[in-house]
């Protein structure tokens, strides 16, 4: 590939404690041409495993903005062996992009070699906890760096789950040394779907382990006898999610916060507007880190 920014020209690595946006293909050229002020960019790691134009655009943008990598395909919660090819691709991308943060999900997406391209829920049992801790450890050892693990949104729970999700995440972080990515929209969606208390969830997550926050919009599937919230990343952040975000920031302090928007992608200006709203919340006084 051509036009790789010399490493000296790269933006310094750390992701700043302000808002950023998910980088999507329709915005590559506008971002490069206008270089609007924004805190940082996050990409889906797998979209850059190839060595074509997407990686070229990312490397050009990397010269101007900090970048974090967010994986959706590692299938950490699977009982299949970890996919070494996927890990090697991720490690090569990390070496090339020098991301400030690297994250994946508390979920599984494959078994028996079949991938469902979805973030599927784990049962929260001692068996699944031990497996997930071991797999995060294996991935972190292979990559030689810390992973952040994100809480999923979910539409079902299992009969035999025994551990509340926030405690499950806390134990993963404690035992594997990984960090956590708190997706506030996912907390809201799952709390609404399963009827748990989102604020209590926020209080249970180990504050010191959380190093990034995600915000996104959800859709509502309405039925004659009720509704289900679906985590579609296709709209603006909903008002109650902004309220929950404010509560999260008050407890956790200022953290890098991503606006995710992955389907029905809007004009860049809309993403930047959402980003500025997140920055406004981060800049309100009286957060934990100012006290």
């Amino acid at each position: 590939m051509s036009a790789v920014a010399p490493s000296g020209a790269r933006h310094p690595g750390p992701i700043p404690a302000c808002a950023g946006i998910g980088l999507r293909a329709p915005h590559y050229r506008e971002l490069l041409a206008d270089r609007p002020p924004l805190g940082w960019l996050e990409v889906h790691s797998e979209n850059y495993f190839g060595d074509g134009p997407p990686l070229d655009y990312l490397e050009q943008l990397r010269a101007h903005y900090p970048v974090s990598l967010h994986g959706v395909g590692l299938s950490l919660g699977s009982t299949d062996p970890l996919d070494r090819r996927h890990l090697r691709n991720l490690k090569a991308l990390i070496a090339r992009v020098a991301p400030g943060l690297v994250s994946e999900h508390l979920s599984w997406s494959s078994v028996g070699g079949t991938y469902l391209n979805d973030l599927l829920p784990l049962p929260y049992t001692e068996e699944a906890l031990a497996l997930f801790i071991a797999r995060v450890g294996e991935a972190q050892d292979f990559l030689g760096r810390e992973l952040l693990i994100e809480n999923p949104s979910s539409y079902l729970q299992y009969r035999h789950s025994t551990i509340p999700e926030a405690e499950f995440l806390a134990e993963i972080a404690r035992a594997s040394g990984c960090g956590l990515l708190l997706d506030v929209n996912n907390v809201y969606v799952s709390a609404a779907n399963h009827g748990f208390d989102a604020l209590r969830y926020l209080r249970t997550v180990p504050a010191a382990a959380v190093k990034e926050i995600h915000l996104a919009g959800f859709s509502v599937n309405r039925y004659a006898d009720g509704e289900v919230l679906i985590d579609t990343h296709s709209t603006r952040v909903a008002p109650p999610v902004w309220a929950l975000y404010r509560a999260a920031v008050q407890r956790l302090g200022r953290l890098p916060t991503l606006i995710e928007w992955d389907t029905d992608i809007p004009a860049l200006a809309v993403l930047l507007d959402e980003m500025r709203q997140a920055d406004a919340v981060l800049n309100e006084p009286c957060h934990a880190d100012v006290a």
């Binding site: 979805d118 079902l156 729970q157 299992y158 009969r159 035999h160 789950s161 009827g195 039925y223 289900v228």
Partner: peptide
Amino acid sequence: GEVRDGRFGGARLFQIYRNNV
């Protein structure tokens, strides 16, 4: 059968994943 009935029955909740996939 392994999905806990919630606001809807387990089969309907599972159908959401089938649709999403």
